[in-house]
Write a protein that binds this DNA or RNA. Structure first.
Length: 573
RNA sequence: UGGGAGGUCGUCUAAUGGUAAGACUGCAGACUCUGGAUCUGCGUAUCGGGGUUCGAGUCCCUGCCUCCCAGCCA
């Protein structure tokens, strides 16, 4: 660390300059590098099963696996764990590829499938049979379950455990040839029916499944189990650090057992904690249920925590990456607050999103002393955080819309916005003062009349007087309509899975997670392309939805801005 | 009551026997043509009990709590 010779030509110090806070996996890698355990290599893999769409939890894993590869000048493969033909589909493969790429994962052409290795896996199984390490078992699923024992009691050995090698070979060959129906027999590893770890009680290596596989079609009717496949796939690909989630901790002894039994290169499995976020469900099974039962419009519904959903919602890869950096990596199973995710997204959007004015819930304002028919082009800053984003003009005229919540006939204490007799600034416009209101039959204010001060053009008063509020607006004549979809949490409870007897997570669904309104937007938004992101000043970040058309703009609210006033108001109640 | 893994501010993460730190949240304030952003300040934590040590979040013993495991799922 200390360089005595720290002149300009001094060698760069330790490779961990951009490493950020430490975590236990990085420590392991660093240590392996130091001891030259893998010849200086770092090679990880991201191994999704194509049985659903990727979600934020996977983003964490992607960041870890591709991140370490990048950090240590290593490699990260994308590998589909497709050993169960009954659940896996090409649609999922395609969405996963798109999502990993969007998140910045670069597999550099190393796109693999467990199914690429079916033949090799089969040959190793034959080898294990010949070595007396595996046998064909005729027990039914029910019988097997009974004989497995329990958490506290050992299992009993299968009556088929001691078949001859010849008989096992013959039966396995015939299993492969399709002679037996689904479930009739299995190939089992001969380990120890009394093992404390249930995974070691003669686990199943192959099962018979007469099902079409999304890639191999009907070539196979026997399929390897996850445990029998995963370590060997890692081994074939030369993976050094096989990083997975905590629930596989119990499987590591089996992972190790297989690669040792076969006698091949032995990668190391390392487990970290799965991500959970408040008010959010991250379980493929339940997300699938939400889709199938149409509680949401699809996997990419912007309320879904899927990558495709949050992409459509307007989240950015950079924001997600920052979030992953903040949550860290450990082995404690905690629950991360949604506010941290939202903070990370806002942080990125604040730097990059163009500012525009849009009125979500319009209230008509007439400026009594503004010349009828006059239109002025007001100059507005596109992004105060980025001068290079430049400026644009926004039309100003006699009749405007402002936000309903920016006017109060009876303003509470601390309310700075427009109210009778009070002067506020229209952003990039003029100071206006409310002189009267028009009400409907029910007594609701439907129109506000103001006067403007021509000397305040652009937003500043030459006499130096101040206003306490600046509000956004659009010119009624020039505004364009847009559908805006306002989202709230999909679930009402911090932990959606926390349900009383007889209820399900569906009972925690937020009935108001989506509100659709028609907003009035400044005309510069005309033709905004799908997926483009904006900040509607003072309201939040919004993203053009894929259903948007040139004739009908559709925006999704990505996330609101921090709203100090809402907090004050809530507190005073 | 078997095996495995964990327990540090409200939340997430650091501290690798030597001053318990950072971020988010919350609260207070400054600034502001976004009640945004930014800035400043404040607050709260080592699961309990023993022990080793000059010194323990860290090592040892013990107790408590939480999570995972009995798919021919991954």
């Amino acid at each position: 660390m200390s360089t005595l010779n720290n002149g300009p030509e001094a060698a760069p110090s330790a490779p961990s300059e951009n490493a950020g806070p430490s975590n236990f996996i990085r420590d392991i890698i660093l240590d392996d590098l130091k001891t030259n355990k893998y010849g200086g290599r770092v090679h990880t893999r991201f191994p999704p099963e194509p049985n659903g769409y990727l979600h934020i939890g996977h983003a964490k894993s992607i960041n870890i696996n591709f991140g370490f590869a990048r950090e240590f000048n290593g490699k990260c493969n994308l590998r589909f764990d497709d050993t169960n033909p009954c659940k896996e589909e090409t649609e999922y493969v395609e969405s996963i590829i798109e999502d990993v790429r969007w998140l910045g994962g670069d597999w550099e052409g190393r796109l693999f499938y467990a199914s690429d290795y079916f033949q090799q896996l089969y040959e190793w199984a034959v080898q294990m049979i010949k070595d007396g390490k595996a046998y064909i078992c005729d027990l039914t699923a029910d019988e097997l379950r009974e004989q497995r024992g329990t958490l506290t009691e050992p299992g009993t050995e299968s009556p088929y455990r001691n078949r001859t090698v010849e008989e096992n070979l013959d039966l396995f060959e015939r299993m492969k040839a399709g002679e037996f129906p689904d479930g009739a027999r299995t190939l089992r590893a001969k380990i120890d029916m009394a093992a404390k770890n249930l995974n070691l009680r003669d686990p199943i290596m192959y099962r018979i499944l007469h099902a079409d596989h999304h890639r191999t079609g009907d070539k196979w009717c026997i399929y390897p189990m996850y445990d029998y496949a995963h370590g060997q796939c890692d081994s074939i690909e030369g993976i050094t650090h096989s990083i997975c989630t905590l629930e596989f901790e119990d499987h590591r002894p089996l992972y190790d057992w297989y690669v040792e039994a076969i006698g091949i290169y032995h990668p190391q499995q390392i487990e970290f904690d799965r991500l959970s976020i408040t008010y959010t469900l991250l379980s493929k099974r339940r997300l699938l249920q939400l889709v199938q039962e149409k509680h949401v419009t699809g996997w990419d519904d912007p309320r879904m925590p899927t990558i495709s959903g949050i992409r459509r919602r307007g989240y950015t890869p950079e924001g997600l990456k920052n979030f992953c950096g903040r949550i860290g990596v450990s082995k404690t199973n905690g629950i991360t607050e949604l506010s941290l995710l939202e903070y990370s997204i806002r942080e990125d959007l604040n730097k990059s999103a163009l500012r525009v004015m849009g009125v979500l819930r319009p209230l008509k304002v007439v400026i009594d002393n503004y010349p009828e028919g006059q239109v002025e082009q007001m100059e507005a800053v596109n992004n105060p955080e980025d001068a290079s984003a430049g400026t644009r003009t926004v039309p100003f005229s006699k009749v405007l819309y402002i936000e309903q919540e920016d006017f109060r006939e009876d303003p509470p204490k601390q309310y700075f916005r427009l109210s009778p007799g009070r002067e506020v600034r229209l952003r990039y416009g003029y100071f206006i003062k409310c002189v009267s209101v028009v009400k409907d039959g029910a007594g609701n204010v439907v129109e506000v009349h103001c006067t403007y001060d021509p000397a305040t053009r652009g937003g500043n008063a030459p006499d130096g007087r101040k206003v306490k509020a600046t509000i956004h607006w659009v010119s009624a004549e020039h505004a364009i309509d847009a559908e805006v979809r306002l989202y709230d949490n999909l679930f009402l409870k911090e932990n959606p899975g926390d349900v009383p007897e007889g209820k399900t997570f569906l009972d925690n669904l937020n009935p108001n997670s989506l509100e659709v309104i028609t907003a009035k937007l400044e005309p510069s938004l005309k033709g905004a392309p799908v997926l483009s992101r904006y900040q509607f000043e003072r309201m939040g970040y919004f993203c053009v939805d894929k259903e948007s058309t040139p004739d009908k703009l559709v925006f999704n609210r990505t996330v609101t801005l921090r709203d100090t006033w809402a907090k004050i108001e809530k507190k005073s109640k």
